[in-house]
Design a protein around this nucleic acid. Structure first.
Lengths: 327, 327
DNA sequence: TTGAAAGCGCTAACAT
DNA sequence: ATGTTAGCGCTTTCAA
């Protein structure tokens, strides 16, 4: 592997000149530039990344911590992050935490080792104070999910308003028996959605029976199970809001399994607008999240902090209530 | 950020001793070890990763090149890779190529810069000779997709047999008008599947009308469109094999849109067994790929090469024909 | 068992 | 415009 030294020798200049050419420092004579470039070409030279990093204290790497890859919700977000990172000559180190404190902590240790310049967390499980401690040395941005009372910068949609709008839509369609299948986690996305849901019911003077607010996880199975539960009520709901499209798909399956029909007997609204929502029958009404843009924005926020620019603590991107066939 | 120097000073030993402790070299006295560990603890020391890398010529990074994140097929594979990488103290740099030669080439330049020790490609677009050239300096493994005549190591299922079995299943169910919606790409997975398909028809003496073999991409839309085409035939097929579950889902939608019913009027078999296949109605019959294990194995193969162990050029993992409702 | 010191490949300050 | 040189933080040889 050719080094800067080799290039310098072949070109008959000093390593400093080669370095200048590599970094487009413009005080190099055309003649030298020419010779250096020829040598680089000839030796097929690429600067060693570790030495650059060591010397300049900059890795041009961003650490992404995600719960797991196998949830399609993350796909477009990661694409957005990758796209914005590439545009700025950064690379992504992506690692999974599986919701484990140890794994997340271990991932973030890359920051201390200066293997990455900053991190973006998609579902942080560490405590705010621990994260804040790390953030004080290496910038962190939270994307989509963040814990309530977080002092770290984050980007997401306005989950409160989004869920409020979904409920309002249902109410305007004439529904009075509206249930919600939420999540047991403690992310802001969840609590905000529940709050928005409550707000709409309150505002339109609609009661919420105790067992109309169920909590599970984000899976199809959870949606199926909770919907069966809802349907077993003496007075089942006529509409339900699910915490994700995957959960909503489970609801659809449950409705079908009970010999009922959506939206005739019961309406369903999902969350996220993932591809699945247009692949099933009936096509899902859902709250669309600008996933690609969420990823792009998270990277931009992090780069802004890295470049010492003013950092926005909190960005809400626009969501959209997409009405299709299930409501 | 504390350095090895700081630790050495605080512990009252030399940096060499600290290094030995860090690397569990056992010729350090308990007393020194003790002192060093105390100092490490006190300074919250983590070894700088760039300097380690520079000195040892080893990054403990694996480069993963993927077409894009937003295809759910990759999710479980990436999870498998991540899991096996973590187990071996490697990290994953994951980047997308979007099928672009330039992007793939640029990604692979990380190898030359010694930013990663080796690479795993999920849908290589560079020519075999270019890849072979890179591989001669830094090991590369291909996972799932690889071009015919590839000399690089790869892991995948036996696509030929898999598709043969799917066709045979259909034939045994009594179908004689069997179509296939394949892909326009030139990956081995595609050509092998088509070959297996042909083999089964040939063996059971079933004719393949020219327009019964269509080619598109892996999308829902493509499946929908091609199925409509198939259905517009004077003599439409009674069964179809789709190149992916997403395509198969498109087929289902097309069948429905024509007022036909699956599997009553027409049977469908997909490929991959992604989550979607059990979320739609009818549940998809499909060829299941051990995606997690494909990821795990790809990483193992790469690490084997990195460790100078015998390298297996070609590994086929077992697939499974899963019969559900659509056939 | 320990330490001194060379050097990995680069950047940047300083000198010319 | 160009070169010399001092490190960045670590591992590893060599000597003691």
């Amino acid at each position: 592997m050719a080094s800067i030294q080799d290039v310098a020798e072949l070109a008959g200049v000093s390593v400093a000149t080669v370095s200048r050419v590599m970094n487009n420092s413009n005080n190099v004579s055309p003649k030298s530039t020419q010779k250096v470039q020829a040598a680089i070409e000839k030796l097929n030279y690429s600067p060693n990344w570790a030495s650059k990093n060591l010397r300049s204290k900059k890795s041009n790497m961003i650490l992404i911590v995600i719960p797991e890859f196998s949830n399609p919700f993350w796909g477009d977000i990661l694409d957005g992050m990758d796209q914005e990172a590439q545009r700025n000559h950064y690379k992504l180190i992506i690692t999974t935490s599986h919701g484990s404190v140890d794994q997340e902590r271990s991932a973030l240790s890359m920051l201390k080792q200066q293997q990455a310049d900053g991190a973006i967390l998609l579902s942080p499980v560490l405590t705010q104070s621990e994260l804040a401690g790390i953030d004080s040395r290496h910038p962190i941005v939270q994307c989509c999910e963040y814990t309530e009372n977080s002092t770290l910068p984050h980007v997401s949609i306005d989950n409160y308003t989004a869920c409020y709008e979904a409920a309002e839509h249902l109410i305007r369609m004439g529904h009075k028996k509206i249930a919600m299948i939420s999540s047991t986690n403690h992310f802001s996305s969840t609590t905000q959605r529940e709050l928005g849901f409550h707000k709409a019911l309150l505002q339109y003077d609609i009661a919420l029976p105790e067992n109309y607010l169920l909590r599970g996880n984000y899976s199809f199975g959870s949606g199926y199970e909770k919907m069966r539960l809802l349907l077993s009520n003496p007075v089942p709901p006529s509409a339900v809001i699910a915490i994700s499209d995957t959960v909503a798909a489970g609801c659809l399956a449950a409705i079908d399994s009970c010999g009922l029909s959506c939206p005739k007997d019961i309406s369903v609204i999902g969350f996220d607008n993932i591809q699945l929502s247009t692949m099933i029958h009936p096509k899902l009404s859902t709250i669309s999240q600008p996933r690609n843009q969420l990823g792009v924005t998270a990277v931009q926020m992090l780069l802004d902090r890295l470049n010492g620019n003013m950092d926005s603590r909190q960005i809400f991107l626009p969501h959209e209530l997409v009405i299709r066939q299930s409501s």
